[in-house]
Nucleic acid binder design. Structure first.
Lengths: 228, 228
DNA sequence: GGCGTTCTGTAAAGGTTGTGCAAAGCGGGG
DNA sequence: CCCCGCTTTGCACAACCTTTACAGAACGCC
């Protein structure tokens, strides 16, 4: 099935050029030469994505976008003469998904349209369940929870991060400096015992087995013992 | 609570500059200076979006992206020295969501990140139009009303939206940033306590049970306790 | 093995951050 | 203009992260 593009552009030459190129690339193309027609077509529900020029003879492209956003979340790519950076920021604030300066390479336009359509397809597939299991532990990134034998562990945000990193590297040693950067998001400074505390608390919550699940590798870091 | 960005960039000066700017704009920032660490962090599932430089000391950014795409649909924005158009096309083909040439304006980077996150939030918002029941609560989307034991709750428009979103995800945590986007339709800014107020008011109207129907998940968001 | 050094475990104190909620501010529609 | 609902402000409080302090384990050196 082809994706349907609505092309709103007043310069007839450019519009027809782009329309031909898009058609060649496998899109179904609808065209509008002004904001009024563009808005009507866009609201008509028979296109998947809109390419919208900002400089239009009647309504500004930005106003068209505003009106569209009041009613739909249709993906919109703004097209415009290379302008002030502020213009772009405004475009995004009003609700644009992308912003391409003219003159634009048709290939890049197509690449961006496809990237956007692909993103939407991914998002709507509503996939989840990239849960990971390590012995009796199960990580559910979607809910930021970790279960032990299907019982949720009562972890704080930081504890979740630390344990999650250790599990992602289960069986191999994670150096303290890396663990700090990855889980706490900052550099490990001298005499900083924060990590040790979180490890200590985690061990308590995981149950103080022997041998401990979280092994200490003196002078290096920690390692989650790989389940048998 | 905030959106979490992973910044993969080897130039330390630029990385720290961007990290500071992003942090100021309300993002939580994780940093990696090479492709290997970046990949590990991205797969660790504790970020919402990735900013990825193409020129990295170890693995090419494109290869990092390829590897990522083999496993996830995590949104990725490529960052690179102004290069050949062909580079961009390749970037998109490998699965990038956006492509920004360096030197980039931090404001534009933020605008594009927010546009992408907003798009994802829109796409993933589940629209359910059937009547739904959750314990003693029943949602009637047609009339935008919610009944408790067949008695209509006297909710304001916003309260309806908030509760309806929470119910649609009953049993799992709805992050504040998503709840804001889905129920209030705008981005959660720092120091914005609006949501907390609506939650507080909702709890009052639902009756202040113990344990509360709407649970707080500190640092993350709220969750409607699934009825037994 | 004795002994000093370095690293780690953990309890308790201290400081920071996030949340609950009352009350005041604000702004659009009747 | 008033009312209603949304938002902002301010303070109190609780959860959490970090620091401090001390005890003990591991290591190297002789």
């Amino acid at each position: 099935m082809q994706d349907r593009v609505l092309l709103v552009e007043d310069d007839q030459e450019l519009r027809e050029l782009l329309a031909r190129y898009l058609a060649n690339q496998g899109f179904t193309v609808r065209e509008a030469a002004n904001g009024h027609d563009g808005l009507a077509l866009a609201l008509g529900q028979d296109c998947d994505i809109v390419v919208l020029d900002i400089m239009l003879p009647d309504i500004s492209g930005l106003d068209v976008l505003r009106e569209l956003r009041a009613q739909t979340h249709l993906p919109v790519v703004l097209l415009t003469a290379r302008g002030d950076e502020t213009d772009r920021i405004v475009g995004f604030e009003v609700g644009a998904d992308d912003y391409i300066p003219k003159p634009c390479n048709p290939r890049e336009l197509v690449a961006r349209l496809q990237a956007l359509l692909r993103r939407i397809a991914w998002d709507q597939k509503a996939e989840v369940n990239d849960n990971r299991e390590y012995g009796d532990l199960r990580v559910e990134p979607a809910h930021r929870r970790i279960y032990q034998n299907d019982q949720p562990l009562d972890l704080t945000a930081t504890e979740y991060e630390v344990l999650q990193v250790l599990l992602a590297h289960a069986g191999s040693v994670v150096r303290k400096t890396d663990l700090m950067q990855w889980a706490l998001g900052r550099r490990l400074e001298a005499y900083d015992r924060t990590l040790d505390m979180h490890i200590s608390n985690l061990r308590k919550k995981l149950g103080n087995d022997d041998p401990p699940r979280i092994e200490t590798v003196r002078g290096l870091g920690y390692s989650y013992r790989v389940p048998v």
